[in-house]
Design a protein around this nucleic acid. Structure first.
Lengths: 202, 202
DNA sequence: TATTTATATTGAACATCGTTCAATTGTGCG
DNA sequence: CGCACAATTGAACGATGTTCAATATAAATA
């Protein structure tokens, strides 16, 4: 079969990305296969290389989509959550990872080849997610704080991330930790309290 | 070639483990190859399966060795470090990961097949590492603290781990974080202070 | 409309991977 | 000395990512 017109380039990209995302959610990064993605989309391997340049390009796009869903998830958590917006964020972080462990893990398991760097689109979506947290952290700190709020917020994200990655990888289960989310939230609260949180809701 | 007597079973195990550890340090989990380990040791693939049962068994053994080196590294850091033992621990955690990024990452990149679990030896070495931290955290907290010190210590480890994993994976570089170690240590200090650290050194 | 140009798609080829297992060959014991 | 045992091999199998000449079709041109 030669050239087709079943899909426009944009449609084809969306199709492969969708199937890729679906497969990643099913089998995770370790079981991911470019050939299978193409087959499910009704195409063959080579097409992935036409559209995404490389398999790493497809995986990066898949992870970018996961990031976008994650940001959306956090915004929902903030909207539907109560007054304690910090708790909503931490809970949202955990919930997403636990709802989509394969997708969430794939973000951190994918390593680009040496020298290669992420595309601008990917960086933008990550900045979006951290931006949501930065805004909420800023709201809760005194206006005259001496902290670099952005750095502080990202450090809190890293702390929560550590807890979450232990949960998803199973390390915490082995350590008999009954409430990882609660621990993560407690650490965040302690740091916020140290810097004079405005409203402290138990 | 059939049966040999170049090495005793114990020697052979040590040989393969050593070469495997060396290769993991060189190429990381993604580039790891059982065939290459065997070739470097002067044997062939099958021997790995004789000795370790599976390739996962070899990788688990490699990661266990990394854990042991890490624990030793932390003890050294405590011994050679100054009075601020908490700082020594956090710095030791980071330094090891940065000194051996491939070995450190391999610990968290290796996922056992569904249902499989780690051997007792592996669990013991992990408990050793967390035990070192638990002891130091207990020393620095008031004797009459209401905290579950073990859980608290492991939560602090998770926080530091989160920062460290961002550094090794390059996420923090993208976020322009100038001092991840300093941030991690600051968060740890804030949590300790919240629970009434005895001596607070800067 | 007929012809040519451009391009998207294919799938075989290649080198590798993990895993299995029959065959082989050396070791140590009776 | 010969036999039973056990360790080691390496070919086989199905899969992976990656490349690229061949091909078939769409789009552009005459």
């Amino acid at each position: 079969m030669g050239r087709r017109s079943d899909h426009t380039p944009a449609q084809l990209r969306a199709l492969l990305l969708g199937e890729g995302h679906r497969l990643m959610a099913e089998v995770g990064y370790a079981g991911f296969s470019g050939r299978l993605v193409a087959r499910r989309a009704g195409y063959t391997v080579g097409t992935i290389y036409n559209v995404f340049g490389s398999l790493d390009g497809l995986v990066a796009a898949i992870n970018t989509r996961t990031f976008a869903l994650w940001a959306e998830w956090l915004r929902d958590a903030l909207e539907r959550g109560g007054e304690d917006r910090i708790a909503s964020l931490v809970r949202g972080y955990f919930d997403f990872a636990l709802a989509h462990p394969q997708l969430w893990s794939a973000i951190y398991e994918h390593r680009l080849p040496d020298g290669a760097s992420l595309a601008e689109e990917d960086l933008a979506h990550r900045a979006e997610l951290t931006g949501i947290v930065e805004d909420e952290v800023a709201l809760v700190l005194p206006a005259d704080t001496e902290l670099d709020v952005a750095r502080f917020a990202r450090s809190l994200i890293a702390s929560v991330h550590g807890h979450c990655s232990y949960v998803v990888s199973g390390s915490f289960a082995l350590l008999d930790e009954p409430d990882p989310l609660g621990s993560a939230l407690a650490r965040v609260r302690e740091s916020l309290a140290y810097h004079g949180t405005l409203r402290q809701i138990s």
